[in-house]
Write a protein that binds this DNA or RNA. Sequence first.
DNA 1: AACGTTTTCTGACTCAGATCAAGGTTTTAT
DNA 2: ATAAAACCTTGATCTGAGTCAGAAAACGTT
Lengths: 253, 253
Amino acid sequence: MSITHTAPRFTSTLTSQCQSCSLSALCLPIALADEDINRLDQIIERKKPLKKGEVLFRQGQSFDSVYAVRTGTLKTFNITSSGEEQITGFYCPSELLGLSGIDGNVYPVSAKALETTTVCEIPFSHLEDLSAQIPSLKHQIFKVMSRKISDDQQMMVLLGKKNADEKVASFLLNLSNRFKKRGYSATSFRLSMSRGEIGNYLGLAVETVSRVITRFQKNEMIEVDGKEIAIVGLTEMQKLVGVASDCDKIKNI
Amino acid sequence: MSITHTAPRFTSTLTSQCQSCSLSALCLPIALADEDINRLDQIIERKKPLKKGEVLFRQGQSFDSVYAVRTGTLKTFNITSSGEEQITGFYCPSELLGLSGIDGNVYPVSAKALETTTVCEIPFSHLEDLSAQIPSLKHQIFKVMSRKISDDQQMMVLLGKKNADEKVASFLLNLSNRFKKRGYSATSFRLSMSRGEIGNYLGLAVETVSRVITRFQKNEMIEVDGKEIAIVGLTEMQKLVGVASDCDKIKNI
DNA sequence: AACGTTTTCTGACTCAGATCAAGGTTTTAT
DNA sequence: ATAAAACCTTGATCTGAGTCAGAAAACGTT
């Protein structure tokens, strides 16, 4: 696999790419000294863009690197014993994927681009070495993994306890929060995954996802135009999911 | 909270407790030099046993330590906005809990003993310092967290895609594997959690869990006497779950 | 041993969401 | 531009598991 840098590699001797990258505040939300950022920058490879449907890594393949999404979206998935795909996550810009490969030295899932996507590849052995020299970097890695664990546990609650409406609403709010965090609109965005992929991820049939979305539209919680979504009843939606202050538990929708 | 050591603390100057602990091979499946084990041993506090129903840490409480289970079992759970408990995991001897508190500096779940339980408390700041000095320890922590991430993702698949029979079978096989790994019988063990707790964890009603267990008994896959379970049709059960071979390929040692 | 409490089991009934079917729309490839 | 493929929507029907109700068993306490 050949690596094509999206920008001349040598520029990082002057200004590191990480430093000028608009995502660094999310990717590195720690106060790394300039020289440390440069050291991190040195080990990162910018890969050439993946086209929609291309695979970043494959379940069972040996684990070498974690990846930070720069633009686009990916999904991770398993192939179950019965041959169907089971989606385990979607990854938006600034998010890290591949961490589940550390144990076992093999990726336990495959990762595929949902649209044209660029990623930074971070060879894990280098990252581990570097984390030994930069304690705050090590702490940051712990944090990212810890966060992933508690997020996944939230997801388990969602899958186990919530009904179709709550699942879809949680999904939309989760995306909304992720977009907001990276500076995009929290109320108006484009779903890069199909209804089928949403259903697969949420443990729902396509038809159910479609029906729920239609219902939300009729209730004027969202406006939909194909893959474009606008959340117009944010508070109402939060109430549905149960995020809201515990006081208004009694109120109806 | 006062700490009562289960054995005189000073013995660790001669033989570290970790070294003599029967779980060390699981808790520390890395070749730590003796002096490194001793250093780890120094920072670990053995707490007095928790009685059934006692809380180890509480959701929202500030995060200081991770815990290794020595004997007994714990559950972790959230209280949802509607006030019900949602169990997110069960922890058996040699397993580590509390890791999800690193991000956020607060435990995102509560942990409660299901029976009389002893744990080792490992103050995280000390562990982090020590991991800076012992690279293989740092790697081990990464591995444990990574493992947790991929296990949780398996659980997500289970919750999202499987029916009641498959869920209960997966649950029993999962326990079986965990008991086997620590040297106990893989086919005969005691469930320390109630049917209600199993159902809560698997996203099923108590009645459904009970019915499935009864059905498994009739099909001669298991024999049940209250909380005692014997798996008599292991192969059949693995077939039911389907993935067994996949999981083993990736996970087993 | 006797009591209340909690847990487990079983049956009858209901319903949310799956499945089946079919038509409409958007995307992709040529 | 156009055909093929993939995706989305809607309606009708079916079913697995939830809910309700009550009996039986297990457990803890005095």
